[in-house]
């Protein structure tokens, strides 16, 4: 059966087309005001990449912060379940998945059968999130794709200690005015986010193997800081970490009864 998963996150919309346990195609686009069109476009792009027409997709599961925004014959599932499912299918030895997205950091533990055990999320604040990193990078004029290169050059990371993203952003601006190196500022922001992820990691008493998901996982400096703080190695999965939610949603869709027409 061919199924689809759409993950409407806080920063990006992702779509994956799945057949059994294989990923046929995926697409990603920024969240913007006209969300219906974005969802439609991303879904179509994923279908095009997979070379599949819409009518062949027999089930669709939506997930993420805006899961309910996906219209049509779909049903929604929690992102933690989807991400955990995807990570387990890609590597059956994974027991912990850390999903670091636009506004949330979520950590999920799964058992040896891939059954969801427990999940923890960050507090109601964006200070430990991808959006915060993005805002800080913008404030010091560093392209998002170069964050790791800048952070790795830092000799003395600045300690961003505020708990609030709004205050923390002002703190970053203050440091810019004090003439602090942008390498030190961005390394400090990364360290603060990695620290929050590590707190959740300690709190859930995470077991090996550990997989990283979400946009922050694409920032190598973040992964290495997190590994250093927790003294663990994370596994790399064969699909881009940002797409794990949508892929997991597609896998979840495989478990239901196929719809007669397309979705």
């Amino acid at each position: 059966m061919i199924s689809a998963g759409i993950d409407v996150g806080t920063r990006f919309v992702k779509a994956c087309i799945v057949k059994d346990e294989a990923l046929l195609g995926c697409a990603i686009e920024d969240v913007s005001r006209d969300i219906d069109r974005v969802i439609g476009r991303v879904y179509q792009k994923a279908l095009d990449k997979a070379g599949i027409s819409k009518r062949h997709v027999k089930r669709l599961v939506s997930t993420g912060y805006g899961a309910k925004l996906v219209k049509g014959k779909s049903f929604s599932m929690s992102c933690t379940h989807c991400v955990a499912k995807a990570a387990f299918v890609l590597d059956p030895e994974v027991r912990t998945v850390l999903d670091c997205g636009g506004l949330f950091i979520t950590i999920t533990s799964i058992d040896e059968r891939g059954v969801f055990e427990r999940t923890l999320s960050n507090d109601k604040c964006a200070a430990g999130s991808g959006k915060f990193l993005e805002m800080s990078a913008q404030a010091i004029e560093i392209p998002f794709s170069s964050i790791s290169q800048y952070a790795e050059r830092s000799k003395e990371p600045y300690l961003v200690s505020s708990n609030c993203a709004v205050f923390a952003e002002s703190e970053v601006i203050t440091q810019v005015n004090y003439g602090r190196e942008n390498t030190d500022i961005i390394a400090g922001v990364l360290k603060s986010i990695a620290g929050r992820a590590a707190t959740l990691f300690e709190r859930i008493q995470a077991q090996d193997k550990v997989a990283l998901a979400g946009g922050l996982a694409t920032v190598t400096a973040f992964s290495s800081m997190f590994e250093q703080m927790t003294d663990r190695k994370t596994v790399s999965l064969p699909i881009p970490p940002q797409n794990l939610g949508a892929f997991g949603a597609g896998l979840m869709a495989q478990q239901g009864k196929p719809s007669r027409g397309g979705v």
């Binding site: 923390a168 002002s170 703190e171 203050t174």
Partner: peptide, 10 residues
Amino acid sequence: REIYGGGAGQ
């Protein structure tokens, strides 16, 4: 403030 919480500029 937060203790050692920065925000000196504000």
